[in-house]
């Protein structure tokens, strides 16, 4: 029998739990309350004591720290061989994983090994009489799908970025305190036995920074489309992004023209984003593109064509020449920023 425990597999960077993991902990808290189960956070890496300190007096029930030098860099082989025994031991009912590159690689593999239900890209969770319904975008966000799971547990669930409330950023302990619950968590440390020979993938190197990185987590996105006319002109959007603390994205048309890399593409075949503020510059608003950004909280459209479909979804529209408008916006923001 599985108990009602909810697990969150929490990613961390530089000894800080990531935003996505905090959202998953937030979602986990909601579910565990309604299902009357515990909430456990699982952290993989090496020398994780910092988390046992920062999480020691929080609202989570259990913190499982899986330590091994071979877990510092993610490989699915190492993660799965450490997680499966722990899952078999504790038998959680649900495992929540944030939608990151790591999560999207790990979750399907974990679910396949366990032969249990898997749901990705969840943007909403509803519980009614212990029945859980997951809402997720399909067809690139043009439709939504309500999914139910059944059968053996744990169900492996990937949560869409920015879909669930997290506490304000900062140290983990303070974040978790923000939920207003304070009790001593049970901390268990596992030093796992791992052989490097059991890890089939060898990581040869990591190349940091690439355009479009952080798009899915960004609060503010400035995106350019065909109206940008040239790769050079994206510099202007970089400037606006740096004034507002945002990230630059692009429409499929701008990517196809070779002005921006694919990693920066927002849309059905690119990234699906829902920032607080999305400023679309010279983007007409093809269904493909709208599918990727229409859940943004506030949309601003700057376009010469008053009939561009982007104005149908924009909260604020400016019909005008972006080469005139954008520099003026930057200027104005700088003036009274």
């Amino acid at each position: 029998m599985n108990n009602n425990d909810i697990w969150v597999i929490a990613e961390h960077k530089a000894n800080i739990i990531t935003a996505g993991a905090l959202e998953a902990i937030g979602a986990g808290k909601l579910i565990s309350k309604q299902l009357n189960g515990g909430l456990s956070v699982v952290i993989l890496g090496d020398e994780l004591s910092v988390f046992s300190k920062s999480l020691s007096n929080t609202m989570v029930d259990n913190i499982y720290l899986l330590e091994n030098p071979l877990l510092v860099q993610y490989t699915s082989d190492a993660y799965i061989s450490c997680l499966i025994p722990l899952i078999k031991q504790h038998r959680p009912s649900v495992i929540l994983i944030p939608s990151t590159c790591l999560g999207r690689d790990l979750a399907p593999k974990l679910a396949a090994v366990l032969k249990t239900a898997y749901v990705s890209d969840i943007s909403r969770i509803e519980i009614d009489n212990n029945n859980i319904t997951f809402t997720r975008p399909v067809y690139g966000g043009r439709l939504l799908s309500a999914v139910v799971c059944r059968g053996e547990k744990p169900w492996v669930l990937i949560l869409r970025p920015r879909a669930f409330e997290k506490a304000a950023s900062g140290a983990v302990a303070t974040d978790l305190h923000a939920y207003g619950v304070s009790k001593a968590a049970n901390i268990e440390k596992y030093s796992t036995n791992l052989l490097s020979s059991s890890i089939r993938a060898i990581i040869k190197g990591v190349e940091q920074t690439q355009k479009g990185m952080g798009l899915t987590e960004a609060d503010i996105i400035i995106a350019g489309g065909r109206g940008m006319k040239d790769a050079e002109n994206f510099k202007m959007l970089e400037d606006l992004a740096s004034v507002l603390g945002g990230v630059v994205g692009a429409s499929g048309a701008a990517v196809d023209a070779g002005w921006m890399p694919h990693s920066a593409q927002v849309g059905q075949t690119g990234k699906v984003v829902s920032p607080k503020l999305y400023i679309a510059c010279g983007i007409s608003g093809a269904p493909q593109h709208l599918a990727g950004m229409s859940t943004s909280k506030c949309i601003v459209a700057i376009n010469k064509d008053p009939y561009a479909p982007i104005f149908q979804v924009a909260d604020y529209g400016i019909v005008g020449d972006l080469f005139e408008v954008v520099p003026m916006v930057i200027e104005e923001l700088k003036k009274n920023g």
């Binding site: 249990t116 898997y118 749901v119 939504l144």
Partner: peptide, 10 residues
């Protein structure tokens, strides 16, 4: 293991 209960428009 999973069942789509319904589809709907955003």
């Amino acid at each position: 293991r999973t069942n789509v209960k319904k589809l709907f428009y955003p």
